[in-house]
């Protein structure tokens, strides 16, 4: 592993230029109405997976998006890459408006924006070997005409993910590799096109704890040494906290808080973030005790609560929370929160 100390991670954020700008991104999945419902002209309902999210990511940054399952974080990642078509909103990558691109232009952009998936067992076609898995993006993009030409690229990608010597892995099949190795192959596949921006969707949640560090550190190194920008999507605040420069917390399709990692973890402002951090267990038996968690369960994203979406579960909710949806406002430099009472 390259030597990147903890202090080096503590870089000031807010430097550098914005590489990805997301404005009011919305993604609804319409529900199919039954014939009866159609006849009764009931309004078409939809799962409001992502409901108006705005943020930006700076060049070379590791930006974490944290939330429980169903909060829309995965959908958001897919929609930013236009693997899902957004319902509304705008995504700008450098000076390219991703949401306005044609299919052909989008194909070109894919060389610059890539994704790493959660499940290394699922994200590879079991019928292809490592060599063909990594070569696939190159062939799709027409960067190589045959698999032999692809070898130098593949070897470099394998070296980048520290799978050396590369020849040893080229002709293995996914099922012959361990989980950690597979996820490295997945990273190598994303890297082979030399992208500037990678969405990492829960890249370590399927891996054993002892090897999660490998992948996380790999991402950290790529970000620090190669300037690759990451959007790290996870449910695990603890790992996000270790590698991310900034973290955003999502709840029911909305971003409720975002800020520099330390500021957010040590001084969470939003009641949801506080509860989330409180619920995370610590591998330290001397700090036993269950933190205060929110009552109830996450409501359905089909009919999210009015006003602040957290209000039915929020310990500090008041009448205004049922009526008025709070905006993300700056608490201090870079730290923003969407709560009527967090700042007072």
């Amino acid at each position: 592993m390259g030597a990147v100390s903890a202090t080096e991670q503590e870089r000031s954020v807010g430097h550098g230029e914005v590489i990805l700008d997301v404005e009011n991104l919305v993604k609804y999945f319409p529900l199919r109405r039954g014939i009866g419902q159609s006849l009764r002209r009931e309004p078409e309902r939809a799962v409001k997976a992502v409901d108006g999210v705005s943020f930006n990511v700076k060049k070379g940054e590791l930006f974490g998006v944290v939330g429980e399952s169903g909060c829309g974080k995965t959908t958001m990642g897919r929609t930013i890459l236009r693997l899902l078509e957004p319902t509304a909103g705008r995504v700008t990558f450098e000076d390219i408006e991703v949401t306005a691109l044609s299919v052909e232009q989008l194909k070109q952009l894919r060389t610059r924006m890539q994704i790493i998936f959660q499940d290394p067992y699922e994200s590879m076609n079991p019928r292809l070997d490592v060599h063909r898995i990594i070569a696939e993006p190159l062939r799709i993009q027409g960067m190589v005409s045959n698999s032999k030409d692809a070898i130098p690229y593949i070897e470099k990608a394998l070296e980048d993910v520290e799978m050396t010597p590369p020849e040893e892995y080229l002709y293995r099949y996914p099922h012959e590799l361990s989980g950690g190795q597979r996820q490295r192959i997945a990273v190598a596949r994303a890297l082979v096109l030399n992208p500037e921006f990678i969405v990492a969707d829960e890249p370590v949640s399927m891996l054993d704890v002892s090897i999660r560090g490998e992948i996380l550190n790999l991402m950290l190194n790529l970000s620090r040494e190669r300037g690759v920008t990451f959007l790290y999507i996870t449910h695990d605040l603890a790992t996000a906290r270790h590698i991310c420069d900034r973290i955003a917390v999502m709840y029911l399709g909305k971003m409720v808080e975002k800020g520099p990692t330390d500021s957010l973890v040590k001084h969470p402002l939003h009641p949801y973030t506080r509860a989330l951090i409180g619920a995370v267990f610590v591998p330290d038996p001397k700090r036993k005790g269950f933190g205060k968690v929110l009552k109830g369960e996450v409501p359905s994203p089909v009919d999210p609560p009015s006003g602040c979406r957290l209000h039915p579960r929020c310990p500090i909710a008041q009448d205004i929370c049922k009526e008025v949806e709070p905006e993300l406002v700056s608490a201090d430099d870079n730290h923003m929160v969407a709560c009527h009472f967090a700042l007072g």
Binding site: G180, L220, R241, H242, I243, D284, R287
Partner: peptide, 18 residues
């Protein structure tokens, strides 16, 4: 190697091999 949100921020460790 187990990440701890309450402790100081360190580099995540891993055990090489499988």
């Amino acid at each position: 190697s187990f990440p701890n949100i309450k402790a100081e921020r360190t580099r995540v460790r891993s055990l090489p091999g499988f």
